[in-house]
Structures are given as C-alpha cells and as structure tokens.
Nucleic acid binder design. Structure first.
Lengths: 143, 143
DNA sequence: AGATGATCAGTAATCGTTCCTGTTCGCGAG
DNA sequence: CTCGCGAACAGGAACGATTACTGATCATCT
C-alpha cells in the first residue's frame, strides 16, 4: 500500500467522522495482502492471525465503514458470499461458477457505460457494478 | 405472456430434460403478472394465492431450474434478497438503496460490453449482469 | 395397471450477516 | 494528567434467505 493511498484513506476517514482504529487498519492490510477477492470470513481469518481477539462482527462493521467511505468495493455474486477488494478504480472481475475463483478481466473499460446510465435515469447513481460469471479455462476443459 | 414466448419456454424445457410442471408454470405466471422484480418470497405469495399447498422450497427450486434453462434472470443486490424477472434480453435495472424499489433504466445497451468481455477473458462467460444502485428521485429529495 | 424416476410439500438445518450487551478505547475538556 | 463521554469492540445470540432432507405424489413409459 503506497503512501499516497494511505494519505487518501486517512483523509476519507477524517472527512467522514469515523475513526481509523487498529482493527480497521488490520482489515485494510488484510485486503492489501490477499491477492484474490476475499470474503468477510477470509478477511477475518487473516486479521485473526495477528490479533486473535478480533470478532467477526467487527470485521463486518469495518468492511461496511470502509465501503461507505469509498475505500473498498463490495461485490455480490450468486452462490458466494460477498467479496471485497481495495477500490482501485473501475475494473472488471469474473468468477468461475464451478471452482469459485475470482480473477480480473483486463482491458475492458466501462466508464462511458456509467455515464450513459446517469444520463438515462432520474436516479442518483451511487454504484454501478458489472458482475460477470462463467467457467474458468480449467473447469471448462473438464466439461 | 405471448404464444411465441410460451413455445420457446416449452422448447427449453424439452431440451433440458426438466419437466414443465404446474408449479413451474405457476411460478412463471407469477413472474409475468408482477410488474416489479419480485423476490422468491414475493413469487411464493403470489403462487400461494392460487395453490395454497405450494412450498417455498418448491418455488426456490423452480426459480433455479428456470434460471438454469435461461427463461428467467436472477439479480443479486446488496441489502436485498435475490430478485427475478423474465429474461427479455439484456436490460438494466436500478434499485433504490433507501426504499428498495427496482425500476428499469431505458435506452442503455451493453451488448458490446458483453462482447468485449468475451474477447478479453479466457473464461467461458455465461452471465454478465450490470447492477446499478442509487437513490430514486423521491428518496433523494428527502435528503 | 405397475414400475421408476422426477418433483413436491413440509420442515429442519445451514450459512452469511446483523444485532445486542456489557466492556474497552480514544479523545477532548477541564 | 485524568475524568467523562461517545465511538468502537468482543463475544455471542438472533435473524433472514436459502438449501437440504424425508417421505408422499406425480408423470410417463412399458
């Protein structure tokens, strides 16, 4: 996690009125370490390694706060708990329906999709997420 | 529900090997009647009006089958149970984070988004859903 | 009609997530 | 520095959506 990112996070906490506690820092570090797109349970287990006293509820609450202030992004898939990752701008994830692995689809941009959505609805749009599911090459090969 | 649609549904059932039972028909009718984007519970209540003996589990199973054969579409939102609607081609729904109302965003097309996704990933893509959330005009006005 | 496999009703169990209670922590006022 | 107060926390219970299980029923083929 670069220094610029850390400064941005502190700024968002300051503006929101939430406090950047050690538990919330630990959740952020766990998200930074884990390559994939961890579930709340995954984050909980990682955080627990360093501080065994953290409660799962605290992790959920931290994830909620972090999402609210725009530091992380939550994604809701079928047949899978919610998964989180650090918000590094719009990007596209795909999840294998058989093995559950989540990976990134590179090179696809959809900022203009968001813009056209905003233009086409009277709603105040806060989130536009693209959820893609399919079969990874390995699982597809198995038939 | 037009005759063409009905024929298509029968064809999909035939090909899949599933049987088009009265319960599954009832679920389809409930989805056709309800204007909005009902949850499994909503569908259950509608179906129950005509046949009080149906079980909630049956509705879930029927919805699963119908989604598998491509007759309906399931959408997963934050802070809301899964919602279903008849699959009438790619379209965009938006859900109000405050009142929960789901409505359609007209005139936004993203077939080319799906195509570029397919081109950019080695995955076999089966589903690409755009989930949009925000505040409806009424809720936004309230602050 | 009888056999067979799919589907169903009814209900229990599971799982992700939220809620609740008493305790601890961080921080500003004095 | 320490006192007081609200935010955050740990631990565990509760909740709601969904799935799993079991014995009964149905559709279909022979």
């Amino acid at each position: 996690m670069g220094a610029t990112l850390e400064r941005d996070i502190r700024e968002r906490f300051r503006r929101s009125g939430y406090t950047l506690t050690s538990q919330r820092k630990a959740v952020l570090e766990a998200l930074g370490e884990s390559r994939g797109h961890p579930s709340a349970e995954d984050v909980y287990l990682l955080v627990k390694q360093k501080n065994p006293r953290v409660a799962l509820g605290t992790v959920y609450q931290a994830l909620g706060v972090l999402e609210e202030i725009g530091v992380i992004e939550a994604k809701h898939w079928s047949e899978s708990p919610t998964r989180y990752d650090l918000n590094v701008g719009p990007h596209l994830d795909i999840r294998c329906l058989r093995c559950g692995e989540v990976s990134e689809v590179p090179g696809v941009h959809f900022e203009n999709l968001e813009d056209s959505i905003r233009a086409a609805t009277p709603y105040e749009v806060t989130r536009a997420t693209v959820v893609v599911e399919g079969l990874c090459p390995a699982c597809h090969a198995e038939g």
